[in-house]
Design a protein around this nucleic acid. Structure first.
Lengths: 112, 112
DNA sequence: TGAACATATGAATAATTGTTCAAGTGAAGG
DNA sequence: CCTTCACTTGAACAATTATTCATATGTTCA
């Protein structure tokens, strides 16, 4: 291996804690699934109940419920109960801005 | 299932194409791995060759090379050759801003 | 209390994916 | 040329994960 100790020392200091980088990866992992992206997108406009989301995406209630749990555990969505129905909504605007940022990258031109 | 046809019609219209949502999920999938996050972070400061990154992260060249290919295919990093050595760097500022956005969410307080 | 409804949960399966190992490029230098 | 060095690539294995199916929770209303 060729020498690059000086650069490594410098870069090593700039790297955040392993734990933080891991948390960051875990957060993005949640955005890395089409079903969850669709759920979040659906909640852009207004709160929806579980079966409405299931209906919208053409998937089972169970599958949606599993994904909603993941989103809730990550504080990306929250819910409220109204009788038998549970309505989900985005918990803050980060979801919107994170998704918007992704769009920026996708729609940007890349010359080759 | 209870009725919510009116809401569904409205939300359905707002949802982007399936293909776009899929591409978006694929993009975030790339950020959803600790190794790749670390690689991108390491490249924040300056370009690095493959074995420097491997050394920094304490991983094999092969593992890093595989991940660099994924990052390159997604236009997140680019490289240049100098003799036997290949230097990688971030291809644009989107990487920085996407990661920064993630940090925002992680470091924000969530009252319960 | 009991039936019906909306949702949650657990276990199982199938598919995806990160790392390793072994072999393959391609450039530099004797 | 032939070797060495930096890196890439492909196949295989292990680990993770999304969905399904069956069952459980909790609320409403008769």
């Amino acid at each position: 291996m060729h020498d690059h100790n000086d650069i490594l020392k410098k870069v090593k200091n700039e790297l955040p804690d392993d734990e933080l980088l891991c948390d960051l990866a875990d957060l993005y992992k949640i955005f890395g699934d089409t079903t969850r992206i669709k759920i979040m997108y659906a909640l852009f406009e207004e709160e929806l109940c579980v079966c409405a989301i299931a209906d919208l995406l053409g998937m089972t209630q169970s599958a949606i419920s599993h994904q909603l749990k993941i989103l809730k555990d990550a504080d990306l969505v929250a819910n409220r109960r109204e009788g038998k129905t549970i309505y989900y909504h985005l918990s803050d605007d980060h979801v919107r801005s994170i998704i918007a940022q992704g769009f920026d990258h996708l729609t940007e031109e890349h010359e080759d």
